Simulated assay, not measured.
Amino acid sequence: MSTLFLVDFNVLKPDIGLIFWTVIIFLVLYFILGKLAWEPIQKALRRRDEEIQSSIDEAKRAREEMQAQADENQRLLIEAREERTRIISDAEKQRKEMIAEAKNEARDAAQKVASDARRDIDNMRKAAMVDLKKEVGTMAIEIAEKILQKDLKSDANQEAFVRELVRDLN
Score class of each variant (00 low, 15 high):
Ala144Leu: 05
Ser154Ala: 10
Val136Cys: 03
Ala102Tyr: 08
Ile24Ala: 07
Leu76Cys: 02
Arg119His: 07
Val130Trp: 07
Asp71Tyr: 02
Ile16Asn: 10
Asn170Gln: 08
Ile24Asp: 02
Met66Ile: 10
Glu72Phe: 09
Ile143Pro: 01
Ser115Cys: 03
Leu132Met: 11
Asp49Gln: 07
Ala80Tyr: 11
Arg163Gly: 02
Glu92Tyr: 05
Val11Asp: 08
Val23Pro: 00
Ile143Val: 12
Ile41Trp: 02
Val23Asp: 00
Ala110Val: 03
Asp155Gly: 07
Ala70Pro: 08
Gly17Cys: 08
Ala100Trp: 02
Glu83Met: 06
Lys126Glu: 09
Ile147Val: 10
Val28Arg: 00
Ile78Val: 13
Asp122Trp: 03
Lys93Leu: 05
Trp21Phe: 09
Leu148Phe: 10
Thr22Trp: 01
Gln158Ile: 11
Ile24Glu: 03
Glu142Ile: 03
Ile147His: 04
Asp71Met: 10
Val113Gln: 15
Ala114Gly: 04
Glu82Met: 13
Ala144Asn: 05
Asp49Phe: 00
Val162Asn: 06
Ile32Asn: 05
Leu29Arg: 02
Glu39Gln: 12
Leu36Asp: 03
Asn123Cys: 01
Arg167Glu: 14
Tyr30Asp: 02
Glu51Trp: 02
Ala127Tyr: 01
Ala70Trp: 13
Leu29Val: 04
Asn104Cys: 00
Asp155Asn: 13
Ser154His: 09
Lys60Ser: 06
Gln74Leu: 12
Lys103Ala: 03
Gly34Cys: 01
Arg95Lys: 14
Glu101Gly: 08
Gln42Thr: 14
Arg63Tyr: 08
Ile52His: 03
Ala68Asn: 09
Glu159Met: 10
Arg46Tyr: 06
Phe26Lys: 01
Ile24Leu: 10
Arg86Ala: 13
Arg48Gly: 09
Lys96Arg: 08
Asp116Tyr: 01
Asp120Trp: 01
Met1Leu: 10
Met124Leu: 15
Ala62Gly: 06
Gln42Asp: 10
Ile147Asn: 04
Val28Lys: 01
Pro14Glu: 06
Phe9Gly: 02
Phe31Ala: 05
Lys112Pro: 00
Gln149Met: 13
Ile88Cys: 00
Val162Arg: 14
Gln53Asn: 12
Leu132Cys: 01
Glu164Gln: 14
Glu97Arg: 12
Ala156Glu: 12
Asp131Met: 12
Ala62Lys: 14
Val136Phe: 10
Asp90Arg: 09
Trp38Tyr: 06
Ile99Cys: 00
Arg119Trp: 07
